[in-house]
Simulated assay, not measured.
Amino acid sequence: MKKPGLLRPVDAASVVVIDRSEDRFRVLVGKRSSKHVFMPDLYVFPGGRRDRHDSRIAVSAPLHPAATARLLLRTPARTNQATLRGIGVAALRELHEEAGLTIGTDVSDQPGMLSFRPDLSGLRFFARAVTPPGQPRRFDTRFFALFADEAGIDPTAATDSHELLDLRWIDIFEQFGVEMPFITVKVLEELKGCLQKDPSLPFGVQAAFFLTRRGQIVRDTL
């Protein structure tokens, strides 16, 4: 088994669902189980690692071309469209598994890996973060924003799971009132800045990139 400092980050995705009703912006977070090795008992967005089969799952609509172009920046040469599609699928698969929200076309009557075909068209890529060396798990996480109304999400339909507990909607322009990892707070700050510049969150906006240099977490851009 590799030492934590030598672990190679694996692809992961997280989705920040935004409820912009009632003239405010709320995002969905949940508490990770105490049984998790990585970030236990902290509030995070739904998300997780990209599984190998995610790249083979059929989708009902692809990522927006501008989001795809931004995702490709500073990625290994081997990264292809299937990999990027798999990252988007991972975001919506995890949202389904962890919060009970389905974004896509129901195919539960057909054999397959998922009971729905994910609709990736509403995913806006706005941040990326690589877990620093030394952690028990390391991820190269892409963060996507998704407007609840555009995706047909009923905010009251979110349900707890064994992976995310105490799901709640928090106003990002007020005190959060929950304990979150450092990177989750930084990503929320980025989202606030994007919304202040343009509340519509245009596809392909410049994305923040958090990585470690000389032992310090720094912010770069994509």
Rank of each mutant, 00 (worst) to 15 (best):
M1C: 02
K2T: 08
L6N: 08
P9S: 04
D11Y: 11
A13R: 00
V15S: 03
V17M: 04
I18Y: 02
S21E: 13
V37W: 00
M39Q: 14
F45Q: 00
G47A: 01
H53I: 14
R56K: 12
A58Y: 00
V59T: 10
A67D: 15
R70D: 06
L71I: 12
L72F: 02
R74H: 07
A77Q: 06
N80G: 15
L84H: 10
I87S: 09
A90F: 01
A91K: 04
A91R: 04
E94N: 14
L95F: 07
A99G: 08
L101Q: 03
P111N: 01
P118S: 05
L123E: 04
R124M: 08
F125L: 13
V130N: 08
V130L: 10
P133W: 07
Q135P: 01
F139M: 06
T141W: 01
A148R: 06
D154W: 04
A157I: 06
A157F: 02
T159A: 15
I172Q: 09
I172M: 11
F173W: 05
Q175D: 11
Q175F: 02
E179M: 08
M180T: 13
K186Q: 15
K186W: 06
L188Y: 10
E189F: 02
K192T: 10
L195P: 13
S200A: 15
L201K: 09
F203I: 06
F203M: 15
G204L: 06
Q206M: 12
Q206A: 13
F210C: 05
R214N: 15
Q216E: 14
V218M: 10
